[in-house]
Design a binder for these strands. Structure first.
Length: 128
DNA sequence: AACGTGACGAGGA
DNA sequence: ATCCTCGCCACGT
């Protein structure tokens, strides 16, 4: 799980790129989805190293509290808040309600995506 | 090589 | 809710 090559970063970048518009994710969440448990700080670094040409939806990544993780004095802070507003993600009192806007890949796919037709997998997973 | 530093997070006081 | 302490781990000194 050690991050020591560009491929590791690309893995994280790819996960970030998958966050749909109107949704947000926490650093820790991206880490887990990308396969790096407890890799929140690594995600932060990957984001900092991300080439701008990649055009990643960096603004959809917030900390676990739903707050923007960069200093409020930073110009990027306002830019991030602006982008969130553009996507109709309420940024109130300096934070996003993660309980409502957090990206939930599995659930999204079950409800909105193609997997909605594959309900058979639900009944088969009798592991409870 | 040792040490301090984060676009982090969880838990305790 | 706020502040502090730790765990985390690649980086730059």
């Amino acid at each position: 799980m050690a991050v020591n090559s560009k491929q590791d970063y690309q893995r994280i970048w790819h996960t970030i790129a998958a966050i749909p518009s109107g949704r947000v994710a926490s650093y820790g969440q991206i880490g887990e989805l990308a396969g790096y448990a407890r890799g929140a700080r690594l995600v932060a670094r990957a984001l900092r190293y991300a080439p701008v040409e990649m055009n990643l939806p960096w603004h959809r990544v917030l900390n676990a509290q739903g707050k923007i993780a960069i200093p409020a004095s930073s110009p990027s802070y306002k830019e991030q808040a602006r982008r969130l507003a553009t996507e109709d993600v309420p940024f109130i009192s300096g934070r996003v309600d993660m309980s409502r806007y957090r990206w939930q890949p599995d659930l999204d796919e079950l409800i909105w995506g193609p997997l909605a037709f594959d309900t058979g997998t639900l009944t088969e997973g009798s592991d409870e």
